[in-house]
Design a protein around this nucleic acid. Structure first.
Lengths: 127, 127
DNA sequence: ATAGGGCTTCCAGTCACTGGAAGGTCAAGA
DNA sequence: TCTTGACCTTCCAGTGACTGGAAGCCCTAT
C-alpha cells in the first residue's frame, strides 16, 4: 500500500509519516520504483503512533512506547511510568491554563468593551 | 540601566529582551559603548510584555496589546476582542487537555504496573 | 596590567511538523 | 503512442518563542 492510503488508514498526513520515517519511528518497505510500501503491521504501528500523539505523548515518549509495544517481554510498570509522568505534565499544564483562564475571565468581565479608552484589561496587564 | 538590571526589574531573561528588540517589540536606547540603555518607560513596557506573555498571549497579540496600551485614543472594545479570542483558545486547549487527562487517567488506573507484560495502556493505544 | 564579569552580535538548535519546489512514476483516456 | 493529471520522491526552508554557545569588546577593581 502506498503512502496516501496508509495515511488515510492511520489517520496521519503523508508528510508526517515521512517525517516519522526520517526520525526512525517506522521503516516502511520500498517498491522497485522507490515508493514506500506499507504492510498491515506498519499500519498498526502508525495507528498506535497517531493515538499516542493524540493523547499528547511526545515523539520521544512514542518511541519508548512503541518499543514497549513491540517487546513481548516488557513489564507493564515501564509503560505505566511513562504514562504517569505524562499525566503529571498534562495536569500541570491544565492547572497553568486554568489560572490564566481565571485571570483573563475576570479581566474580560471587568472591561466595558466600548469606544472609551479606559480598560481594566490593560490595567491588569500593567499591574 | 543595563540589560541585566532591566531583566531583573521586568522579570524576563536578558536573552528574551534582546529577542523582543530583534522583533521590534521594544527599542531601548544605546549608550556610547553600544550597550542597551533602559528607561523606566522601557521597564514598564517590558513588564507589560512579561505579564501578557505570562497570561499566554502570543507575541503578536502582545504587539497589538502594547500598541493599544500606548494609544490613549484606543477603544476598550479592541482590547476586549483580543482578550476574548485568546480566552476562547485557552478554553479550547483546556478542554483538549482535560479529555486527554481523562483517557490517560482511566488507562493508568487500569494498568497493574507490575513485571507482567499485559498492559491496558498499550491496548488502549492500539485500540 | 590583568582578571572577572557584563555586554555585544551572530549562528544553531529546540519540537513536531508543514509548505513548497523540482522532478520521477503510473494509470487512464484520446 | 502520447498526454494528462494524480501520485510519488527528495530536499530545503519556515513555524513560535525563545535558548545555548562562541567570539570578541568593555568596564571596574585590584
Amino acid at each position: 500500500m502506498n503512502i496516501s492510503e496508509a495515511a488515510t488508514r492511520a489517520g496521519l498526513p503523508p508528510k508526517t509519516i515521512r517525517y516519522y520515517e526520517d526520525i526512525g519511528l517506522i521503516t516502511p518497505d520500498r517498491g522497485a520504483n522507490g515508493y514506500r510500501s506499507f504492510s498491515e503491521t506498519h499500519i498498526h504501528k502508525l495507528h498506535f503512533l497517531a493515538r499516542a500523539r493524540g493523547l499528547g505523548f511526545s515523539v520521544e515518549d512514542c518511541r519508548t512506547l512503541l518499543a514497549l509495544y513491540e517487546d513481548s517481554g516488557r513489564a507493564s510498570a515501564d509503560v505505566k511510568a511513562v504514562a504517569q509522568e505524562h499525566l503529571a505534565q498534562i495536569e500541570a499544564k491544565i492547572a497553568e491554563l486554568t489560572a490564566m483562564r481565571d485571570t483573563l475571565t475576570d479581566l474580560v468581565h471587568a472591561c466595558a468593551g466600548d469606544h472609551r479608552p479606559d480598560c481594566p484589561i490593560l490595567k491588569g496587564l500593567e499591574q
